[in-house]
Amino acid sequence: MKKVIVFGAIVVACAVPILSAEQFGSKSVADTTYNSVSNIIYNNTDAEDQGDVVAKGSDIVVYENEVKLQSQLSQYSDDPKTEEEALQDIIEEKALYQKAEELGYKVDDSKLDEMVENIKEMYADPKTSNREVLEAILSKYENEEEYWAYLKDRYRITETIAAYEADLMKDYAKEEGIKKEVSPDDEKWQDYREEEVNKIQEDANVKIIEEK
């Protein structure tokens, strides 16, 4: 009987630290990731210091920190990018945004404010499952408003491009005589889009500045 108690005590004594370590281990991995991601965001979103110019077109400028941000954050995604690949993505986005603006696409400030407000509300909502994501980002900024302003700028870009691409999709559907909704995965649509994007990028005439 005594032996059984001693054995049981040993098992419990061993199991507790192992289980606790596992629990804390997974938490600390998440914490580390939040922290790393928020550091990358904070370090590369300073509006006053964007690093060197790495690419330039007629009306487009790409800064070093934008490239670092995209490339470094993508390492946490399913699709990690080199800096060269990230640069290409940024050029595409900037060219599309510029074209959309030229064509008169514009998103109301009130809509962008509403989007930011929605995020703030969600952050305050206890039923939001992973508030730590935003908490980690905001904790890096002395003034939270800097991040909210950055967010608004990003929404402006993505929403403007989205509106433009939605119309491109309609044009494609019209040309192809498609009456139902076009799936974004439609390969022909993707080819059509790629062709349009290539033309837009050519017009933007962006040159990559080689490192000295």
Binding site: I41, L73, N130, I137, L151, T158
Partner: peptide, 18 residues
Amino acid sequence: KTKNYFFTDTSGAVMGAE
């Protein structure tokens, strides 16, 4: 059942999904 989640794109912008 409703739940909210945050996710981040590679520009560092937080998005929310409900």
